[in-house]
Design a protein around this nucleic acid. Structure first.
Length: 419
RNA sequence: GGGCAGGUGGCAGAGUGGUCAAUUGCAACAGGCUGUAAACCUGUCGGAUUAAUUUCCUACAUAGGUUCGAACCCUAUCCUGCCCA
């Protein structure tokens, strides 16, 4: 196997345990089985997810097969731990539906042919959950399996994991299911090895290291070759601090429209530019390195590098034309403070006095969540009508027609409703 | 099974009968400065309502109770942590 293949795999990874193993298996020349686990919840894929997905794609490009493992067993039970108490218990049908949504989105990143891709659900071997599995009565994770698995490790080993020990030290709850979770995840690797003959590599974020290593140990314990563990850095979101996630609202969705995606990428802190290039694009490593040097020497304007980054990424999920358009639009609206070319239109009509109430209008078209918020925004000077700050919520219809701006980046075109 | 301490707004965490829509920090939002970066400064941050921080409603685990009045007191229930067994 050429070094370039190994270089491709190595790009952007946090750790490989062990690289020597990996090289040997790659050199053996047979297609490897690559495992990666995913939540069964409804996905809305963002760039954070793509770090892992892109790495899977690298393996696919080298001829290996990805097992896309949906960890729905806990979703079907409902996780009793404190944090996710409110999480709703999924049905098998919902799980299937979410998986289909996954595939729809993942198509943009992964090869979907049967030689390169296969979806599995761990509920298959944990519960015999699928109707098919139930009817064949194939296997259920019964008590004897639990005993076997639970005897393979010790409490001390499990709670040495960083986030468990921290939570225990802080007096926070850790549910038994959570403790058992690493074993279940490792057991998934065992089942994959049983069904596919081997489980060569498992990928995950660095926060998954412990679980992934457990899989390595369990494979050994069950008489299989241990999996290679490959971890990827966690990608910070647009705030530059926290891991990208939808609930923190710092995410950039791969389904975001071009302009929005472009703008969000421009809003990341400068410190993330190089990381984004490395983990999210195929841009040549040598170029990234020299640009990184230019950035630290202040030889280039970070904004220009970011424009390039945004263009590259938008091109990946849309088209290069769309990226070019988004860039022009960005420069027009935010650098030159001009109006966007394309604004959502809102039809308005006046009340009996020929007036339009902007507060009601904003709430009505979901620009704000409440009238109080709308009032506040007006008071703070965040609302502009045709470039003029709005002082009074009551405006005559003629004055209201035109461009309504709320905050720095929300525009609406107000037009008169047909009578 | 026994004892103790707790459950407060997105999070952390004050408050322990009226002056509490609830100190403060973080997050978020807006304005200023900018490169829709960071940092910084200012303001906002449950809902409705008002000329007004005006009035009203909802909220401090859940359900009842005491009281003119409860996040705060009592009872029951659920949940969490610690110690003992």
């Amino acid at each position: 196997m050429s070094d370039s293949a190994l270089d491709l795999i190595r790009r952007g990874v946090a750790d490989i345990i062990s690289e020597k193993d990996l090289k040997e298996r790659m050199d053996a020349g047979r297609p490897m089985v690559i495992k990666a686990g995913f939540d069964p919840t409804a996905p809305d894929l963002h760039l954070g997810h793509t770090v892992l997905l892109r790495k899977l794609r690298h393996f696919q490009d080298l001829g290996h097969k990805v097992i896309f493992l949906i960890g729905d067993a806990t979703g079907l039970i409902g996780d009793p731990s404190g944090q996710s108490k409110t999480r709703k218990v999924l049905t098998w049908e919902e799980v299937r539906e979410n998986a289909a949504t996954y595939q729809q989105q993942v198509k943009k990143l992964l090869l979907m042919g049967p030689k390169s891709f296969e979806v599995r659900y761990n509920s298959e071997w944990v519960f015999g959950a699928s109707p098919q599995m139930r009817s064949t009565g194939l296997e259920v994770f019964d008590f004897s399996k639990f005993v076997e698995l639970a005897s393979l490790t010790t409490v001390a080993r499990i709670i040495e994991r960083d986030d468990f020990s921290k939570r225990l030290a802080a007096g926070k709850p850790v549910s038994f299911l959570e403790l058992f979770y690493p074993l279940m995840q490792g057991y998934d690797s065992v089942k994959i090895a049983e069904q596919h003959g081997t489980c060569d590599v498992e990928l995950g974020g660095t926060d998954q290291t412990f679980n992934l290593l457990m899989g390595r140990e369990l494979l050994k314990a069950y008489g299989h070759q241990p999996q290679i563990v490959l971890t990827l850095p966690l990608l910070e979101g647009t705030d530059g601090v926290a891991k990208m996630s939808k609930s923190l609202n710092n995410h950039i969705g791969i389904q975001d429209p071009p302009n929005e995606m472009f703008g969000k990428i421009m809003s990341i802190p400068d410190s993330l530019i190089v990381k984004y290039f490395t983990l999210l694009t195929d841009v040549d490593v040598a170029w990234i390195e020299s640009t990184a040097a230019d950035l630290s020497n202040k030889a280039v304007n970070p904004r220009d590098v970011k424009l390039e980054l945004a263009s590259v990424i938008v091109s990946m999920y849309h088209t290069s034309d769309a990226a070019e358009g988004a860039k022009e639009e960005f420069l027009r609206v935010f650098s030159n403070k001009e109006l966007p070319t394309d604004m959502a239109e809102v039809e308005i009509k006046s009340d009996a006095d020929g007036q339009v109430n902007l507060i009601e209008l904003m709430v009505c078209v979901n620009l704000t969540n409440s009238k109080g918020e709308a009032r506040r925004l007006i008071r703070q000077g965040a609302v502009k009508l045709n470039g003029e700050k709005v002082e009074q919520p009551q405006v005559s219809l003629e004055k209201a027609l035109g461009t309504l701006q709320v905050g720095p980046r929300t525009f609406r075109k107000l037009i008169e409703a047909p009578k």
